[in-house]
Amino acid sequence: MHLAYPAVLAALLFCVGLYGVLARRNAILVLMSVELMLNAVNLNLVAFDVWLRDALHAGQALTLFTIAIAAAEIGIGLAIVLMVHRNRGTSDVDRLRDTAEPRQGAGAPDESTDSTGEHPGEKAEAAA
């Protein structure tokens, strides 16, 4: 089998995941796209391991480690997303902009209702 098949498939899957990470708004959909990117890397590792006939099977061992780390990552990520959703009532990554620079003029109107901590003090400071 041609080595270009798995390599090209992995590259395309990675780019699909990249598009998902950049274009999705829901944090859980972003996590799904991250999984796609990790799987593309796994496919590359397995394909090159089989191609090189590695005596240590480094590619397959690293694939297993990547799968385990991806499982840990999805657990922690979902816990964080659930906590954010419980505190803010939303899991849209576009609306979590507490650490962003405030836009020119007034910020988005939903920000001041969402966040309870820093924004009123900041606005008072700006007004003073």
Partner: peptide, 10 residues
Amino acid sequence: LLLFGLMLTK
């Protein structure tokens, strides 16, 4: 897990 997360975030 992802499906559970989708359901828990309504």
